[in-house]
Write a protein that binds this DNA or RNA. Structure first.
Ligand SMILES: Nc1ccn([C@H]2C[C@H](O)[C@@H](COP(=O)(O)OP(=O)(O)OP(=O)(O)O)O2)c(=O)n1
Ligand SMILES: [Mn+2]
Length: 663
DNA sequence: CTGGGGTAGT
DNA sequence: ACTACCC
């Protein structure tokens, strides 16, 4: 999501919007309490490694806060009960049940994290205002911010008050259908609805009337509290003496622009005034699926391989439930650094060969698919880490992106009715659930919701007779000819625009969403970047390239479907044959690489040492007697060595200190 | 004693 | 590929 303040502010319809923000109470803890009701009356924390990521309200009364270290939480509350929350499966499933339920009220639902949703309830409110059954008494449900007294003759007040009633109904539905409590905020834009939803917690709701907007925004004691102003921007503002909201409001825009750039400057100043014209953008199915694990130390290739395979299997299982197939694979690592655990993540990505992608979706347990993807992952790994050198990882993340409707769900199981929807039908469908009670049949076939919103409908009224630009041609061209014709020619069908959906759960398996663009740009539709490219290939005058990368990342996958019984026989374009994980040195010398590594002697030294000494060092390092220095980017994925350096390196063992330090 | 996720922009 | 943002 993006809180934005820009061009659309002149649009009159924006001022009339009624936006609902729903934020579930202590979400992970609440899910755990549903799973085990005995935990309800106890102070409960949800633990991820050494972090307590959230806790229930019993614990909060005892002084425990979100995102506290386990140590600190236990100090404050020795009776604290901790449950592990490293596996997000249950939270993710409940999260999509909430979103799916909300989509029965309105198709305009935008997710933010696992437990927050924005809903544009403008149309629902207007429908209620027109409905004689709902006429008469105008009393707000829940709190009115700042105890402002509504003016019954004020149109805007009326709409917001009705909005608060819709919010109450929605919260009641979420509780009765799913057993979850949460807080709602109702206001005229996303920013204000989010801010106001947090003013009474837990399990309460608040509506903001426009006259109290400045009161709300100025109640924030620091700019960092404004959603959209994150850590970095807040630091810069602080340095400018603009730590307070009022200072930011009145700062000359030129001053902000100089430090932050025009776009950010304008946006955050609008936000500081409580203005936010960003639309509620229907989220749709996820654009990426990832699994990660962190640990104190991972320093052997076999351990890396085992951990990656576990992550991969989890992902494949989720992907097959999703019903789509992934076409891009990304590996992210974090190397140990004594300070600054963050900011040192590196990633490499590559395309997934079509044959692999197609097989991926059938069953999750295909050995051929697993081994093909494992080969890709290990090649990506070796693009970042020279496995002949010592390394110390603290995190691994595997991510599937570029998700597309798989062949089986796209062309054989789905008919044209899944791809397109008749306009009249979708219009009738979208508002009814609110007056007809809560007949929630929702049991999404897919936990993570390719199914939650797979039926596209053009709520914005666009009807296109020619093929729109934003249809993924790669996928479209694979359709049977008759389906193509039907899509192009059908005049009463409407193209999905801004990814707005009117029939939640209508299409069970992945399906059509991939033929249409998402809200903002052509995401997930095979853009070049999904195939992977190097940072240093970007034309940024401000950033100095760290290295040249003559290799195409794409080449990693060239042989991915080759018989995998002989691992590491593939030879990516431009590199030597992979020698596996042995200590052997590569033979060939890339002159350009050598000349670009004037200060790299320290790292290359290691591989020039006698194998005996190498093994000894490796052993000490694994026994934690010494620590490898971090592999710097200059040397990664090169593995090139110069014979000329050998003698000098071997005869100067002290240079080992350049890449090892005693513990 | 700082998780494990996501989105969008550059 | 990375940064910044959100939870
Ligand atoms: N940095 C963060 C922030 C949140 N979460 C997870 C745990 C939370 O349970 C869930 C929702 O985040 P919230 O900020 O909404 O926190 P809670 O819902 O737990 O508490 P509250 O009742 O204050 O909303 O997301 C997380 O893993 N890491
Ligand atoms: Mn919450």
């Amino acid at each position: 999501m993006r809180f934005s303040a820009s061009i659309a502010s002149g649009c009159p319809s924006l001022a009339r919007r009624v936006i609902l923000h729903l934020d579930m109470d202590c979400f992970y803890a609440q899910v755990e309490m549903i799973r085990n009701p005995e935990l309800r009356e106890k102070p409960l924390g949800v633990q991820q490694k050494t972090l307590m990521v959230t806790c229930n309200y019993v614990a909060r009364k005892l002084g425990v806060n979100k995102c506290m270290s386990i140590r600190e939480a236990r100090e404050k509350c020795p009776q604290l009960v901790l449950v592990s929350g490293e596996d997000l499966t249950h939270y993710r499933e409940m999260s999509y049940k909430v979103t799916g339920l909300l989509e029965e009220f309105s198709p305009r639902v935008e997710r933010l994290g696992f437990d927050e949703n924005f809903i544009d309830i403008t149309e629902l409110v207007e429908k209620r205002l027109r409905d004689p059954q709902c006429g008469g008494a105008m009393e707000a449900s829940g709190h009115v911010y700042n105890q402002q007294v509504p003016d019954a003759s004020d149109w805007t007040h009326q709409r917001l008050i009705v909005g608060s009633q819709v919010a109450a109904d929605i919260r009641a539905a979420v509780y009765s259908q799913l057993g979850l409590t949460g807080c709602a905020g109702v206001a005229s834009n996303k920013l204000l609805s989010k801010l106001v939803s947090g003013t009474f917690k837990p399990n309460q709701q608040t509506v903001l009337l426009p006259e109290s907007c400045s009161c709300l925004i100025n109640s924030l004691n620091h700019v960092h509290r404004i959603p959209g102003i994150g850590y970095k921007t807040a630091q810069r503002l602080e340095a400018l003496g603009l730590g307070s909201v009022s200072a930011l409001q009145s700062c000359p825009i030129t001053v902000l622009e100089k430090e932050l750039g025009a776009a950010v400057a304008h946006r955050i100043q609008m936000l500081s005034r409580g203005e936010d014209d960003s639309l509620v953008t229907p989220t749709g199915p996820p654009q990426s699926l990832s699994e990660e694990d962190s640990f104190k130390k991972c320093c052997t290739v076999s351990d890396v391989s085992a951990k990656l395979e576990e992550l991969l299997r989890l992902l494949l299982s989720r992907l097959s439930a999703d019903g789509r197939s992934a076409h891009t694979l990304r590996l992210t690592i974090r190397q140990f650094t004594p300070t600054n655990k963050y900011f040192n993540r590196e990633s490499r990505q590559c395309p997934i060969p079509v044959k692999v992608a197609q097989s991926m979706n059938q069953g999750s347990g295909s050995a051929a698919v697993v081994s093909a993807l494992m080969e890709l992952l290990m090649k990506l790994f070796e693009k970042m880490i020279d496995v002949k050198m010592p390394f110390h990882l603290t995190l691994l993340n595997v991510c599937f992106s570029n998700l597309k409707a798989s062949r089986s769900s796209a062309s054989s199981r789905c008919s044209i009715g899944f791809y397109l929807t008749q306009k009249k039908l979708s219009e009738n469908d979208c508002g009814d659930s609110e007056t007809s009670g809560f007949s929630i049949t929702t049991n999404p076939a897919f936990p993570e919701k390719s199914g939650h919103s797979a039926c596209p409908a053009g709520m914005d009224g666009e009807v296109s007779l020619s093929l729109p630009e934003d249809i993924d041609m790669d996928v479209f061209s694979q359709l049977p000819d008759d389906i193509k014709k039907e899509i192009i020619q059908s005049p009463h069908m409407t193209r999905r625009s801004k990814n707005i959906q009117t029939k939640p759960h209508a299409a069970a398996a992945g399906g059509i969403q991939n033929f249409f663009t998402r809200g903002k740009s052509g995401h997930g539709l095979n853009s070049a970047r999904d195939e992977g490219y190097s940072q240093e290939s970007l034309p940024s005058p401000l950033k100095k390239p760290l290295r040249k990368d003559s290799e195409s990342l794409r080449s990693v996958s060239d042989t991915a479907m080759a018989p995998s019984c002989t691992p590491h026989t593939a030879c990516p374009q431009g590199t030597e044959p992979n020698v596996g994980f042995a200590m052997d040195c590569k033979e060939s010398v890339d002159g350009d690489a050598v000349s670009s590594l004037p200060k790299s002697v320290d790292v290359n030294v290691f591989s020039q040492l006698p194998v005996e000494l190498q093994k000894e060092l490796m052993s000490e390092w694994k026994n934690q007697k010494i620590t490898p220095k971090i592999q710097t980017k200059k040397f990664q994925d090169k593995g090139k060595t110069s014979k000329g350096q050998r003698s000098s390196a071997a005869s100067h063992p002290n240079s080992l200190l350049k890449y090892f330090k005693p513990n």
